[in-house]
């Protein structure tokens, strides 16, 4: 998760340690996920509840695609989805990082 960049920041720090804006994009919190939401587009009614409830802004407001780089697998989207189009599946491969 961006360790090389992180090391460079520490090495290059002249005095105070600072990170440039946007660097946390490298911290792909998808690695924290133990279960993974999978959207069934057939059953999706595009109501947008998942987009509204996702605390990590990981769901696209138009396509409703899930950003697995940052989704932490909390399961709120699956809980709120009225037509039951989101299923939480076990994470086995760690594709989030």
């Amino acid at each position: 998760m961006g360790m090389e960049k992180y090391e460079k920041f520490v090495k290059d720090a002249k005095d105070v340690l600072t990170y440039p804006p946007g660097w946390s994009l490298d911290n792909k919190t998808g690695a924290w996920r133990a279960t993974k939401p999978v959207l069934d587009h057939e059953r999706c009614t595009e109501c947008g509840l998942c987009w509204l409830y996702c605390p990590e802004a990981c769901i696209d407001s138009e396509s409703f695609d899930i950003d697995y780089d940052y989704c932490k697998g909390c399961g709120i989207c699956a809980e709120e989805c009225r037509p039951g189009a989101i299923e939480m599946q076990r994470e086995e491969t760690g594709e989030g990082a």
Partner: peptide
């Protein structure tokens, strides 16, 4: 855990004859 180990050097220093037990399908 079945996936977290993909992100960490979990086997560092393992001694010969080491036994690795994974929770995995």
């Amino acid at each position: 855990d079945s996936s977290i180990w993909h992100f960490a050097p979990i086997t560092l220093g393992l001694v010969p004859g080491g036994r690795l037990i994974f929770n995995s399908t």
